[in-house]
């Protein structure tokens, strides 16, 4: 009887999203009076004993071979084996791109009900109910998981990381890794320093910025605040910015602490991807722009006049 948290890593580091999942899993375990354990797959330099600081007792490490996360069959096969071996009741993952490929497969293998994109801890008084976003962030749905084993993928930036002192015991598992019929030819990383999906702050531009040559305003503020850059779909469609920066209903859905929108009208399809952000700032010269209705702070003004002053003020903060 336990909670198992699937932990992702890259470049010798545990992903921030997985630290959130660990904290979520540990909180759920204490709510249910169970132990929380972690599962790490593949070779990594990350100090696994330190995961104890996020509330897990044991770290099961399926290593030491390099295992790509691309083949969902192989990863789901390994996760299923570990869940069965330790008889875990609940499997927790962060709702990452990897989890989207893997969690549904594990759900079928284990006949375990899956809720993807959970935003809070389950209610356990009346069955086992998990709240998730539906209608692209415009509503919540409370989903009852009807099966004995359960799978939850937690939305990124929905659950706070809780770190204490503590170390975990690392248990190495030697599981046979099947051969893959998927071959990775290349990986092209195009993003800047901060990943949009993980970013705590996002500076975003719309058609109001007139052209790609004006993105210096977005990039400079992003750099100063350690933010990722994003854009509206209209901007990506015009090829002013790369497609992976497009947020909204048909783009990436994000939930940063700060979403700073410059020259974006705030169409309902755009809002669908950003309405879970904690603080929304809107700069738009049209006081009637719908985005103001969804914003926490706003300036009605010309971006080309306002932004340089904002950038100067942020710089002045840094100098203090």
């Amino acid at each position: 009887m336990s909670i198992l948290i699937f932990v992702e890593h890259s470049d010798g580091k545990i992903k921030k999203a997985s630290l959130e999942a660990l904290s979520y899993g540990a909180a759920l375990a204490s709510k249910l009076g169970l132990d929380a354990d972690a599962l790490v797959i593949g070779k990594t330099e990350a100090p696994l004993t330190e995961l104890g600081g996020y509330g897990v007792k044991k770290v099961f490490h399926v290593g030491p071979t390099e295992t790509s996360s691309t083949d969902t069959k192989i990863i789901s096969n390994l996760i299923t084996k570990v869940v069965e071996q330790i008889n875990a009741d609940v499997l927790v993952l962060s709702n990452t791109l990897t989890a989207k490929g893997v969690a549904p497969r594990v759900s079928v293998r284990l006949k375990a009900g899956l809720v993807s994109g959970a935003v809070s801890l389950p209610e356990i008084n009346n069955g086992f109910t998990v709240r998730k976003n539906v209608f692209s962030g415009k509503a919540f749905s409370d989903i009852n998981i009807l099966t004995a084993k359960k799978i939850i993928t937690v939305n990124q930036n929905a659950f706070e990381i809780a770190k204490t002192a503590g170390t975990a015991e690392v248990v190495t598992l030697n599981l046979e890794i099947p051969t893959s019929t998927i071959e990775v030819l290349a990986v092209n990383k195009t993003a800047g320093d901060v990943l949009l999906s993980e970013a705590e702050r996002v500076i975003s531009g719309g058609r109001g910025l007139k052209g790609p040559e004006n993105w210096g305003l977005v990039e400079e503020l992003a750099k100063l605040t350690g933010a990722a850059t994003a854009c509206s779909r209209a901007v990506a469609d015009a090829h002013w910015r790369p497609h992976h920066e497009h947020v909204g209903q048909t783009g990436l859905a994000i939930a940063p602490n700060l979403y700073f929108a410059i020259g974006i009208s705030g169409a309902i399809q755009h809002l669908a991807g950003v309405n879970r952000s904690k603080t929304i700032v809107v700069i738009n010269k049209d006081p009637e722009a719908p985005f103001f209705k969804a914003a926490d702070y706003g300036i009605v003004g010309d971006a080309f006049e306002v932004m340089p002053k904002i950038i100067a003020a942020v710089k002045a903060l840094g100098a203090n």
């Binding site: 890259s10 990452t96 791109l97 990775v184 030819l185 990986v187 092209n188 993003a191």
Partner: peptide
């Protein structure tokens, strides 16, 4: 080509 964090991965599959 599939989306991975911060970019794209190109793969072949049977």
């Amino acid at each position: 080509n599939r989306e991975v964090e911060g970019g794209e991965e190109i793969l072949t599959s049977s």
